[in-house]
Simulated assay, not measured.
Amino acid sequence: MSDESKESDTSDSSDLSETEDTDADSGGLKPRKYQLELAENAIMGKNTIICSGTGSGKTIVALHIIKNHLEGAPKGKRKVVFMARTGALIK
């Protein structure tokens, strides 16, 4: 791993706690403005790839997209598969 990658990994991981704002009304994590912007195209039904730095809240964006999909889908048609390759994301 290059020195640049090491710096990026350590500086970005400290941002994770800032991203985990809770909102009592939503019962969970509240996406920040930039995270809502990242989710816009996917919510509009467009195929979307989100590429963002470590600790930037991509999982929160994914959960926001999933929540929107489940709330908008008719009953009986609600299906989502969410896969994570690390234990930290699963928790």
Results as ranks from 00 to 15, higher is better:
residue 76 G to T: 05
residue 75 K to N: 01
residue 54 T to S: 01
residue 51 C to R: 06
residue 6 K to S: 10
residue 46 K to C: 12
residue 45 G to V: 05
residue 20 E to I: 13
residue 90 I to S: 07
residue 86 T to V: 11
residue 60 I to E: 02
residue 50 I to R: 04
residue 36 L to P: 05
residue 62 A to F: 07
residue 46 K to S: 12
residue 22 T to G: 03
residue 6 K to V: 11
residue 29 L to D: 04
residue 73 A to D: 00
residue 66 I to L: 09
residue 31 P to M: 08
residue 90 I to C: 11
residue 30 K to F: 05
residue 18 E to S: 13
residue 48 T to D: 08
residue 89 L to W: 02
residue 49 I to D: 01
residue 3 D to L: 14
residue 86 T to M: 12
residue 9 D to P: 00
residue 56 S to G: 03
residue 70 L to Q: 07
residue 85 R to I: 10
residue 56 S to V: 02
residue 83 M to H: 06
residue 28 G to F: 08
residue 76 G to A: 04
residue 63 L to K: 03
residue 41 N to R: 14
residue 10 T to K: 10
residue 28 G to C: 08
residue 84 A to C: 14
residue 79 K to R: 15
residue 4 E to I: 14
residue 38 L to P: 00
residue 10 T to D: 09
residue 39 A to M: 02
residue 40 E to R: 14
residue 63 L to R: 01
residue 4 E to Q: 13
residue 50 I to Q: 06
residue 56 S to I: 05
residue 73 A to M: 03
residue 22 T to Q: 09
residue 91 K to T: 15
residue 77 K to D: 10
residue 18 E to G: 10
residue 37 E to F: 05
residue 10 T to C: 08
residue 3 D to N: 11
residue 14 S to A: 11
residue 88 A to I: 15
residue 26 S to A: 12
residue 18 E to K: 14
residue 16 L to V: 07
residue 70 L to G: 07
residue 34 Y to E: 15
residue 83 M to E: 06
residue 71 E to I: 09
residue 46 K to M: 13
residue 73 A to F: 04
residue 87 G to W: 13
residue 53 G to P: 00
residue 34 Y to R: 14
residue 32 R to M: 12
residue 5 S to C: 00
residue 35 Q to S: 06
residue 77 K to A: 09
residue 43 I to C: 03
residue 31 P to K: 03
residue 65 I to Q: 06
residue 34 Y to M: 12
residue 11 S to C: 07
residue 44 M to D: 13
residue 5 S to P: 00
residue 31 P to Y: 04
residue 36 L to F: 06
residue 68 N to P: 01
residue 59 T to L: 07
residue 60 I to K: 04
residue 30 K to N: 08
residue 28 G to I: 10
residue 20 E to V: 13
residue 88 A to D: 12
residue 46 K to G: 03
residue 62 A to V: 07
residue 20 E to Y: 13
residue 48 T to M: 10
residue 42 A to I: 00
residue 4 E to P: 00
residue 57 G to M: 01
residue 19 T to H: 02
residue 45 G to E: 02
residue 47 N to V: 07
residue 78 R to N: 04
residue 35 Q to E: 03
residue 79 K to C: 14
residue 77 K to Q: 12
residue 36 L to C: 14
residue 39 A to G: 01
residue 71 E to K: 14
residue 45 G to K: 06
residue 26 S to E: 11
residue 78 R to C: 01
residue 73 A to G: 01
residue 31 P to Q: 07
residue 68 N to Q: 07
residue 28 G to N: 04
residue 82 F to T: 03
residue 39 A to K: 01
residue 14 S to Y: 08
residue 85 R to F: 14
residue 82 F to E: 02
residue 18 E to T: 10
residue 44 M to E: 14
residue 8 S to Y: 11
residue 73 A to L: 02
residue 91 K to Q: 15
residue 34 Y to A: 12
residue 6 K to G: 10
residue 27 G to I: 07
residue 76 G to W: 05
residue 51 C to F: 04
residue 36 L to M: 13
residue 41 N to A: 15
